[in-house]
Design a protein around this nucleic acid. Structure first.
Length: 614
RNA sequence: GGUCUCGUAGCUCAGUUGGAUAGAGCAACUGCCUUCUAAGCAGUAGGUCACAGGUUCGAAUCCUGUCGGGAUCACCA
């Protein structure tokens, strides 16, 4: 339902009439006219001059003239260089507004029948979520909503890395030092509780390592390797993994636990279940707060063995090759990649093999044509290889795979590093933005007569708007710098600024007598801020489509900001309830209603809720 | 070193398939609340779009190279 399609058609007819030229809709560029020129929409003519053999000015005159005569929506034009600036008629604007108003779910598409699966979270169960996860989750969630707005069916999944040495470290630390404490007894969120034991393990391990570094054995080793005095700290740093694997008592216990787990030892499994359940409870609480959900969870513990059959299959097809030691490889050098191992010599599968299995199972589960992986760009190469492998295996969905990659999040102080304790914890951050929102709200005092829980609901909405918008306004591909102070900001280019536009609209409707009159008579005059607002509303469907094509929420975020900005200006320059005539008031109220509706649904695509007041 | 990616105002970011004199916000300064929510509006100031070539009517945008940041190149996940 593109409103400008009529203008486009009229222009194409003009090209045919005047120059006997067929033009495709892609060739014709219709832009909003820039502020410093007169007109509402501008058509760029340069690209046609070759075909017509005429200068752009002459073309502009002829075509502008054609449009004014033959297309009633255009009432005037001017030509500057190759730009044909068109002035639209009064009825064009009123007609457009009523089209928008009468289109249900304006801007969104009807069902395409296409089915997408999106993976947008892949947490480890040994530590709580941090800022990096937040970007990942918000991005994936928003893209899933944008795809739905484009008419696709979406299945949301997460893959939980619930096995491996890391969780065993937490388990071991809890057994040795936990004294039977639980999240409940300590009043701690489950994921943090388990994460703390992971940290505790690391600390105890470091203690043990330090003591060992003074031992005779360590000294012999230093002598043997001929390590100089001043290189000793460096050496021990590099040696840490070897120490963990070959010398450490704690390391040995952790590895034994992993082995027991792999053998299915009942006691170990039950402890593992218990700890993971605590973690899931914690994650669940965070997901609920973020208002995101999953249709299906995949657990690494259930999928890590899956790739093997595929390898057998691939060997038969000649996609893979076996080495003398039994390891299995794929050679991707002809596609500009490397040789990659898919099965170790001991027959166990590696990460990428597991991903093959997971992809197959997902296809079996849902039969989707498209699969999207929301994963940071450090894994670009991994996915390039994975997709190439699936293609060579002849998987039916191989053409529909997409790695939605995003840049890592930096802090103003540098990179986030868990080892250096500089990670920003997700729950802390959420807590902080919400209390900032409540502080700001208290200052303004608009909410005094609401109940505490109503107020709390609004603080949540404002706080999350600040946080989510701050993250989503940046193009996914770009690395972003996270400034905690700025993320708490509620003024200027922020989520709350956009909410404020919506709140103003709601307030107007509370104060109006509540009914839009059905008179078809339009206003006498349409003001510039009204036209600008309408122009943006007209472009909404294109923005949704573009965001879908690019898998890019920042497109929507920037649109929301532009729309809110135009509304604020409109609100400031034009009286709405105090309009001079009933028709004007009606027109403006409809404009408010459409703006409010588009703002609310566009922000919903970002996972941001709108409050009625703030 | 190979490959990928980013580089726009002091800071954080926009800038649609190449289009007019490159835009916002923050920070700084100046105005605007007996009138629909001032989380707002208007204004001042701030730029060699990393650099150098090329493509063309036209380049922040496309191509090549250089410089700088980041990622990646495991029988780790």
């Amino acid at each position: 339902m593109r409103i400008l399609i009529q203008l486009l058609t009229a222009f194409q007819a003009g090209m045919k009439e005047v120059y006997q030229l067929e033009t495709s809709s892609e060739e014709v560029l219709i832009n909003p006219t820039k502020k410093e020129f007169t007109g509402d929409f501008t058509i760029v003519l340069f690209s046609f001059t070759k075909k017509t053999g005429e200068g752009p000015e002459t073309m502009g005159e002829k075509l502008g003239n054609y449009l004014v005569i033959n297309f009633t929506d255009v009432i005037g034009y001017n030509v500057i260089k190759g730009f044909l600036n068109l002035e639209m008629s009064h009825t064009f604007w009123t007609k457009s507004l009523s089209t928008i108003k009468n289109t249900s779910n304006y801007g969104f598409l009807k069902s395409t029948g296409e089915k997408y699966l999106i993976e947008y979270a892949s947490p480890n169960t040994n530590k709580p979520l941090h800022l990096g996860h937040i970007r990942n989750i918000l991005l994936g969630w928003s893209v899933s909503r944008i795809l739905e707005a484009n008419g696709h069916q979406v299945i949301r999944t997460q893959v939980v890395n619930d096995r491996g040495i890391a969780i065993c470290k937490s388990m071991l630390a809890w057994l040795k030092f936990g004294k039977g404490e639980t999240p409940a007894t300590l009043g701690k969120k489950g994921d943090h509780f388990v994460g703390d034991f992971y940290v505790l393990f690391e600390n105890k391990f470091q203690e043990e390592y330090k003591v060992w570094q003074e031992s005779e054995l360590a000294k012999m080793l230093l002598a043997e390797k001929n390590i100089q005095e001043n290189n000793i700290p460096e050496f021990f740093k590099d040696f840490k993994n070897t120490y963990f694997n070959d010398y450490s008592e704690l390391g040995k216990e952790a590895r034994e636990m992993l082995q027991k787990w792999e053998k299915g030892d009942a006691e170990t499994i039950s402890l593992w279940n218990k700890m993971n359940d605590w973690v899931y409870e914690g994650f669940g609480a965070t997901y609920d707060k973020l208002k995101v959900s999953f249709d299906k969870n995949y657990y690494e513990s259930q999928t890590y063995l899956l790739g093997k059959e595929t390898v057998e299959l691939g060997l038969k097809k000649g996609v893979f090759e076996k080495e003398a030691d039994g390891s299995v490889w794929i050679d991707l050098t002809d596609a500009g990649m490397d040789r990659k191992i898919v099965l170790r010599s001991d027959g166990t599968s590696v990460y990428i093999t597991q991903d093959i299995g997971t992809a197959m199972i997902r296809y079996k589960d849902f039969g989707v044509s498209r699969m999207i992986y929301t994963v940071a760009d450090e894994q670009d190469y991994h996915f390039k290889v994975l997709f190439e492998m699936l293609k060579r295996l002849g998987e039916p969905y191989a053409g529909g795979l997409y790695h939605l990659n995003y840049g890592m999040v930096d802090l103003t102080t540098g990179k986030m590093k868990s080892r250096e304790g500089t990670v920003v914890d997700a729950d802390d951050l959420i807590q902080e933005v919400i209390s900032e929102a409540s502080a700001g709200s208290a200052e303004r005092g608009e909410l005094a007569e609401l109940t505490v829980s109503q107020q709390q609901d609004i603080f949540d909405k404002i706080g999350f708007a600040a946080l989510k918008f701050f993250i989503l306004k940046v193009q996914p591909r770009k690395r972003m710098t996270f400034n905690p102070q700025e993320s708490l900001d509620m003024q200027g280019q922020t989520g709350p600024y956009i909410q404020n536009a919506f709140v103003r609209i709601q307030s107007i409707f509370r104060k109006s007598d509540g009914k839009l009159s059905e008179t078809e008579g339009g206003p006498n005059k349409i003001e510039q801020p009204e036209k600008e607002l309408l122009r943006l509303l007209i472009s909404f469907p294109d923005v949704v489509a573009e965001a879908g094509r690019q898998y890019d929420p920042s497109t929507i975020a920037n649109y929301c900001y532009a729309l809110a900005k135009d509304f604020h200006r409109f609100y400031h320059e034009v009286r709405i309830l105090g309009a001079e005539t009933a028709e004007e008031k009606n027109f403006r109220l409809q404009l408010c209603a459409c703006t409010g509706d588009v703002l609310e649904r566009a922000m919903d695509l970002l996972g941001i809720d709108m409050p009625d007041r703030m």
